[in-house]
Each structure stands twice: as structure tokens, then as C-alpha cells.
């Protein structure tokens, strides 16, 4: 798989604040790439630079083989962006919004109308086309935001906290559509999110802190390196668990132990003859906490 995004030594400062600090990473074509970090970590700044909407101080950004410094129009045609909050015109109808935004990609007339109908069917909002955007619910508006980003059939879809504050049904619909597009169109998805369960499904994860990469890898690699597995033992007494010499905590009917590897789990279970147990891999929340020392709060708590 070729690299569709290549960022080398990217730096952006605002006065004395370094928002992005010598950042380098690559994204492979067709993958779901999760870009994580607390607020102010530099995620949105990086995205705005990638979209050519913000000037960088130094470094290079190559998108689908095009340099943003010399071929920004080509880069913009390859990218669709769903911003953190809806940026559509609230006093206009959904159709007006999609028509005016489509025109910015030189889509007009029948071609544009067909594409609007296509994304409306895809995201299930054909009945909302004549409705004013400002009168839609948060979930309905988010679907229109995604449709707007998909209008020109981008190769890369950038989702900047796309599901924050959405109901589970809308989140599920959005992810279903995005996953289908990723598979059918080989579309690359560049995701920032506060929901770690979404990041856990990514092909590759980069965790940003203070404008620098703190950790990166596949979710499995990150969990293996940064999070401990938990082993929960049932039907045992406290003395047996104390005898293991591993820190534990009482959890309802069982005992929860933090283990460093599957091998350690195997040894504990076999050597002690435990026959009722549960092994859980470390979570991405634990990874994030371990890497940044901070929790990533979703929704209103962010």
C-alpha cells in the first residue's frame, strides 16, 4: 500500500506557542488512521495545514503525491473535511448548502444534483433536502456535514471529532457509511476522536501531545506496550489470590489482577489450576492515559 499522506518535520507556531513541533508521520492509502490528543495537542492545526487552509512555518506535507506548497488545488480536490462543529449555513436549506458547496468543486447542474441525491440516499436524508439546516437536530446536521465532505468524492476523508455529542444510532449509521466507503472506494479515513472505542478500530494510531508524537502504532501494538491486560479470577478465595504476589482488587464475585503479558496469564492459570477466569486486553483509554498522563474525555466533558 502506498502512503497517501506524508508529513515530514512539520512545525507551526503562534507567537511563543509551538502548536505543532517537528511532526512526522505517514498514512497508508485506504486505512483508518486515528490521530489522538487532548484539546490543544495540535490536531486541528495539523488538519488545517493538510487542507491548505493554514500556512505552516516549516516542513513538508505531501498528499496523494502532491505537495501542498505547489499543488494545493489538487490536494484540496483529494480531501473532504468534516469539522468539529457544523460549518454549514444555518439559514439556508440542506439543498442550498450542498449546491453552493458543490459549486466550489466545480460541480454544477445535473451532475451536482445527481451527486447530492446519491449522498442523500447514502446517509438517509433525502427527506431533509428542503429543510433549513438550522432547524435540524444535531444528528441530522452531522449527516449533512458528512455528505458535504463526500460531495466531490474525495480520496481522503478527514473527520475531526465527527461523532461528539451524537446519539448511538447516528454514530452507528455514520460509521457504517464511512466503513463501506472505505472498503468500496478505498477511501482513506483520517480521524480525530475523543471516543477511544472508535480509535480501537483504527488501522494505525498516532497520539499527539504538545504538538509532538508521544506514541504511535497499531491499536494492538499500543495496547501491548502501554496498557496492561486484566485477568479476573472467579471461584477462588482471597488467600489463593494473595499467594500470587500480584496486586489485585476485589471486584464483585471475583478478583481483578493486572498482568503484563498473555504468557504471564497462562502461567498463573495453569500453575494454580484456576478454571474460571476472564482475560481482557488493555483498552485504548488505558493507552492514552499511560502515554499522555491525561484522560481523553468525550462529549461534553472534553
Amino acid at each position: 500500500m502506498k502512503n497517501i499522506i506524508e508529513i515530514q518535520n512539520l512545525t507551526k507556531t503562534y507567537g511563543s506557542l509551538t502548536a505543532v513541533d517537528n511532526l512526522s508521520f505517514k498514512v497508508k492509502e485506504g486505512e483508518l488512521f486515528a490521530f489522538l490528543g487532548v484539546n490543544g495537542a495540535g490536531k486541528s492545526t495539523t488538519i488545517n495545514i493538510m487542507c491548505s487552509a493554514l500556512a505552516k512555518d516549516s516542513g513538508s506535507v505531501i498528499i496523494n503525491g502532491n505537495n501542498i506548497d505547489t499543488d494545493s488545488d489538487k490536494v484540496k480536490n483529494d480531501i473532504g473535511v468534516v469539522f468539529q462543529s457544523s460549518v454549514l449555513d444555518k439559514s439556508l436549506t440542506v439543498l442550498d448548502n450542498l449546491q453552493s458547496r458543490g459549486a466550489l468543486y466545480s460541480l454544477h447542474g445535473k451532475e451536482l444534483r445527481q451527486r447530492i441525491d446519491e449522498v442523500a440516499r447514502l446517509l438517509d436524508f433525502s427527506d431533509l433536502l428542503k429543510r433549513t439546516v438550522g432547524k435540524l437536530s444535531g444528528g441530522q446536521r452531522r449527516r449533512i456535514d458528512v455528505a458535504r465532505a463526500l460531495l466531490h468524492k474525495p480520496k481522503i476523508l478527514i473527520l475531526d471529532e465527527p461523532t461528539t455529542g451524537l446519539d448511538p444510532q447516528t454514530r452507528s449509521l455514520l460509521w457504517k457509511v464511512i466503513s463501506n466507503l472505505q472498503k468500496s472506494e478505498n477511501m482513506t479515513v483520517f480521524l480525530t476522536t475523543h471516543y477511544m472505542e472508535e480509535a480501537a478500530d483504527a488501522d494505525y494510531v498516532v497520539i499527539l501531545d504538545g504538538g509532538k508524537i508521544s506514541a504511535d502504532g497499531t491499536p494492538y501494538e499500543l495496547k501491548t506496550k502501554w496498557a496492561r491486560d486484566t485477568l479476573t479470577l472467579y471461584g477462588v478465595d482471597t488467600e489463593s489470590v494473595e499467594g500470587l504476589g500480584i496486586p489485585f482488587e476485589r471486584l464483585g464475585d471475583g478478583y481483578k489482577l493486572y498482568v503484563s503479558s498473555p504468557h504471564e496469564t497462562k502461567t498463573i492459570v495453569i500453575e494454580n489450576g484456576f478454571d474460571d477466569f476472564e482475560l481482557a486486553k488493555g483498552k485504548m483509554d488505558d493507552v492514552f492515559l499511560a502515554v499522555t498522563g491525561r484522560e481523553l474525555l468525550g462529549g461534553d466533558g472534553k
Binding site: 488545517n48 487542507c51 491548505s52 487552509a53 494545493s72 488545488d73 489538487k74 484540496k76 480536490n77 480531501i79 473535511v81 469539522f83 462543529s85 460549518v87 454549514l88 449555513d89 444555518k90 458547496r101 466550489l104 468543486y105 466545480s106 458535504r148
Partner: peptide
């Protein structure tokens, strides 16, 4: 103010 300018800036217009 609404962010529409940024939305327009990411297009090749």
C-alpha cells in the same frame, strides 16, 4: 465567525 470561511478555504475555489 461561523467557520464557513474555513469550510470554503479547504476547497479549490
Amino acid at each position: 465567525v461561523t467557520g464557513a470561511a474555513l469550510d470554503i478555504a479547504v476547497t479549490p475555489v
